[in-house]
Design a binder for these strands. Structure first.
Lengths: 191, 191
DNA sequence: CGGGCCTTTGACTGGTTTCAACTTCTGTGG
DNA sequence: CCACAGAAGTTGAAACCAGTCAAAGGCCCG
């Protein structure tokens, strides 16, 4: 198993070696090929996923049958449909690997046991969710504050390597517009 | 002090009376008139706020000088600029009372002490942030899935009493469009 | 009773979508 | 290693959703 999760945990809390080692036994490694699914809309989101390497995306299919990407998760990010995971009820989203990926999964029940046995991890997950909450507030601000075209330029400025890494139609989907329009924006910028 | 916070805490965790009573001493009650500010953009978000009664909103001022509301908080919701609160750096948002409100505030330093003395509250805040994170995922879905007009009808269907309670221009701001357009939507529905 | 804020209405504008056709890239099997 | 099929990206024209601006009307609160 990679050591990226223990390293990530220690960025947020202090925890001794024995307890950390034991905690890690609750996680299950999963290897994914490109486009392989971890969760399909309508199923129950059984696990919370930590990305060791690669990239996941969460999406849903809208009324017109088009896939709308709502979130990406790169290395060291957690991802799940938390409404589904928390209540163990059907998910509104699907989760899929954008590229070949390694993730660590923790099931709902294992998660409860883990936190009961190692209460110090409550703090870790509190900080992880608080950070995600903060990020969601900023993300809403970006959407309110910018036109679609500006969203693209902002995103490309903030995450230039990521823009290279993923296909354009996924980026367009994430930013909330059509691949055709993204194509137009890009050609405009070149001239 | 109202008992709404202890009740809320006990919806999420079990905690004995003494510990809960002591924990409550860390919070400071604040009364707000309509339009009174708790936080102004550029200041540091010193506290996390729990709404006992009334309604808060978080907003920023865009390049055109227009206030954009990104979030409301009703009874039993927590609100803060969590980027600013976590790092104690200048806020990107302002927080203001929409109507006469009673809130409980906990300062950054008091929050750290509270959690150190009462680690069981890490779980409470973990669950609160996880719920907020889940809500943010659904909110993004709504924005991707619906036109502006549909957003209004969905919102009015889900929170009819709230639509009555707040002025239209704030609702328009929250849904991401202009008061003029909201007015047009409403007149269309009547005929 | 008055003033200012909120809401409504209408004409015009433009950013973005839709649709369809075409080109380029990618990967998989022969 | 090449060929080919499907996926991804580009281009352009027409349509539309929603914003902007300006002006008038309603309503709350002092």
């Amino acid at each position: 198993m990679s050591d990226s999760l223990p390293k990530h945990i220690r960025k947020f809390i202090t925890i001794d070696d024995d307890e950390l080692t034991n905690a890690l036994t609750f996680f299950r490694p999963i290897s994914l090929r490109k486009k392989e699914n971890l969760l399909v809309e309508g199923e129950i989101c059984k696990s919370n996923y930590f990305v060791v390497s690669g990239c996941l995306r969460m999406f849903f299919v809208n009324e017109k049958g088009v896939e709308q990407t709502v979130q990406f998760a790169l290395e060291n990010w957690w991802l799940a449909d938390y409404t589904s995971f928390s209540a163990q009820k059907p998910a509104a989203f699907s989760i899929q690997a954008v590229e070949k990926s390694e993730v660590l999964a923790i099931d709902f029940a294992a998660n409860e046991t883990l936190l009961a046995q190692h209460p110090c991890l409550e703090r870790y997950f509190r900080l992880v969710h608080q950070r995600a909450h903060a990020a969601a507030q900023y993300r809403m601000k970006y959407h309110y504050d910018h036109s679609r075209e500006e969203l693209y330029h902002e995103f490309a400025r903030l995450f230039p390597e990521f823009v290279q890494r993923i296909p354009q139609y996924l980026l367009a989907s994430y930013l909330g517009f059509t691949p055709e329009y993204l194509s137009e924006i890009r050609s405009r910028k070149l001239s």
